[in-house]
C-alpha cells in the first residue's frame, strides 16, 4: 500500500475516533528525519490524548508518527474493555505458558488469586492462552488505575511486577497483517537486544560482537548512516545483533559520554537492509526526540546501583567490547517486497523452529482497516528494560545464553 493511501486510512481512523492531530518535523528538513504527532479530542481538552513519533524519509516519518500515536491511543486506557478481562491465579500462570518468563518467580510467589488477563490466539497451531494484562499495559499497574483494577476484580499487588511491564509487542497497521508483522518483529528485536546485553555484560568475556563494515552499506543505508552521524555528532557503530531466531536484527549505537547516556536504534526485518534502515533512523529519532522528552526519572540508573552487573547493562558502554569486534560485510541478499501475510508466516515458522509460539490479541480493528494488535512470545526476553533504569533480571533464555558463552 502506498504511503498516500496509508495516510488516508490514518486520517479516516482519526475521524472515526473523533480526534484531530498536530504534527511537526523534529528534524527540520533533514532526510531521513523524525516527526512527532499529538492527538487531541475534537473540542476537548488541550492536553494530547496520545503521542507518537515516526522515522525515515520525510513522508514516511510523518505518516509513521500518526500511526504510532493511533497505536498508543488504541492500546491505552481509553479503549480498555473490562468485560473482556478474565481472571486467573498468578501461580497457575507461572506454571503454564509463562513458566519460562523472567517474571515467573514473582508470579509464583504472589499472594493474590485473581489477576486480570486477556485471551490471546496462537499464531499457527491451536490453544488460546490467558496473558496477564500488566505485561502489555504499563498504565494498568499505576496508582491512578486502581479503579480499573477494582472494576475487573483484580486483587494482585503489582508493586514488583511493574518493573516487567512495557508496551513492547504492540503495533498498528493499515490492516491486521501489517500490524502483526510489526508486532512480531518488535518482540524478536527486543529479545535480540536483551540477549546482546547478556552476552556483553553478564557472560564470561569471550563475546565478540559483529560490527558492520560501513564501507559495505547499500546506498540508502549509507545515507541514513551519514545522517545519524550528523545528528548524534558522534561516530555511529552498526552492529548485527541477530539472535538464534534468525530474523535479521541491527543496532545503531553511540556510547555514553559525560553529557548523555548511550544512544541506540534497533530494527528487525526479514530484509537486512530494512532492518539496518530502521535501526539507523530510530537512532536519529531518539536523538532528535531528546529535546521533546519530559520523561522525568526515566533512564535514571540509580535504582541499579546496588547491582553492578545490572548497572553495567543499563549504562550499555560497549567501548571496550567494540575493540574486540569482528568486522563483517553488510549481508548482501536479494530484496523482494514480500507481502506482510507471507512475511508473518515465515517469521512464525522461524520462531517455531526454535520452539517458540507467538500469541496475538486484536486490541481494536476500525472499519477503515486500521488495526492495533499486541503479540507476545512466551520465553523471549524483555531484559532490555534494564536500559530504562528498570531493575529486572533475565529469564531462563538469558540465563542459558550467559552460561553457554
Amino acid at each position: 500500500m502506498s504511503l498516500a493511501e496509508a495516510a488516508k486510512r490514518g486520517l479516516a481512523a482519526l475521524a472515526v475516533l473523533g480526534l484531530r492531530k498536530e504534527s511537526a518535523d523534529v528534524g527540520r528538513g533533514r532526510d531521513p528525519t523524525a516527526w512527532r504527532c499529538g492527538l487531541y479530542a475534537d473540542g476537548g481538552d488541550v492536553s494530547p490524548v496520545a503521542f507518537g513519533m515516526g522515522k525515515g524519509r520525510p513522508e514516511e516519518a510523518r505518516v509513521g508518527a500518526l500511526f504510532e500515536a493511533v497505536e498508543h491511543y488504541l492500546t491505552g486506557p481509553a479503549w480498555f474493555d473490562s468485560t473482556a478481562v478474565e481472571l486467573a491465579g498468578p501461580a497457575g500462570l507461572a506454571a503454564g505458558p509463562f513458566h519460562e518468563d523472567a517474571c515467573a518467580p514473582l508470579l509464583a510467589g504472589m499472594p493474590g488469586r485473581r489477576m486480570a488477563c486477556l485471551r490471546y490466539r496462537p499464531l499457527g497451531g491451536q490453544g488460546a492462552v490467558l496473558v496477564p494484562l500488566f505485561l502489555s499495559a504499563p498504565w494498568y499497574v499505576e496508582a491512578g488505575a486502581a479503579r480499573l483494577r477494582d472494576l475487573t476484580g483484580d486483587d494482585c499487588d503489582y508493586s514488583h511486577l511493574v518493573r516487567y511491564s512495557c508496551n513492547s509487542g504492540s503495533a498498528v497497521g493499515v490492516a491486521a497483517s501489517e500490524a502483526l508483522l510489526h508486532a512480531l518483529n518488535e518482540v524478536i528485536e527486543r529479545d535480540a537486544l536483551s540477549l546482546f546485553l547478556v552476552r556483553a555484560f553478564l557472560s564470561d568475556g569471550r563475546f565478540r560482537p559483529r560490527l558492520i563494515d560501513a564501507g559495505t552499506l547499500p546506498y540508502s543505508t549509507a545515507q541514513a548512516y551519514a545522517t545519524a552521524e550528523d545528528v548524534t555528532g558522534s561516530p555511529v557503530q552498526l552492529l548485527d545483533i541477530t539472535s538464534d531466531v534468525g530474523v535479521p536484527t541491527m543496532m545503531a549505537y553511540t556510547p555514553p559520554t559525560s553529557r548523555h547516556p548511550h544512544r541506540r536504534g534497533t530494527g528487525t526485518s526479514l530484509s537486512p537492509a530494512y532492518a539496518a534502515w530502521r535501526a539507523l533512523t530510530e537512532l536519529i529519532q531518539v536523538t532528535l526526540g531528546e529535546s521533546l522528552s519530559q520523561s522525568g526519572p526515566r533512564g535514571d540508573l540509580a535504582g541499579l546501583a546496588a547491582h553492578p552487573a545490572l548497572h553495567a547493562c543499563g549504562r550499555f558502554d560497549l567501548t571496550g567490547l567494540l575493540g574486540e569486534a569482528r568486522v563483517v560485510a553488510f549481508p548482501q541478499t536479494a530484496e523482494a517486497g514480500e507481502p506482510p501475510e507471507g512475511q508473518v508466516r515465515r517469521v512464525v515458522t522461524m520462531l517455531a523452529a526454535r520452539g517458540y509460539t507467538g500469541y496475538r490479541r486484536t486490541a481494536r480493528a476500525l472499519a477503515c482497516g486500521v488495526t492495533a494488535v499486541h503479540v507476545i512470545v512466551p520465553g523471549l526476553e524483555r531484559f532490555m528494560l534494564v536500559t530504562d533504569g528498570n531493575l529486572v533480571i533475565p529469564g531462563p533464555r538469558g540465563h542459558a545464553i550467559a552460561s553457554s558463552e
Partner: peptide, 20 residues
Amino acid sequence: FDQHLTQAEHERLAELLSTM
C-alpha cells in the same frame, strides 16, 4: 525511550552471576 529485588529474583541473579 520509584527498586529492590525479591528473594526469588536475588537467587536467580546470583545463579546467573556465578557463571561469570
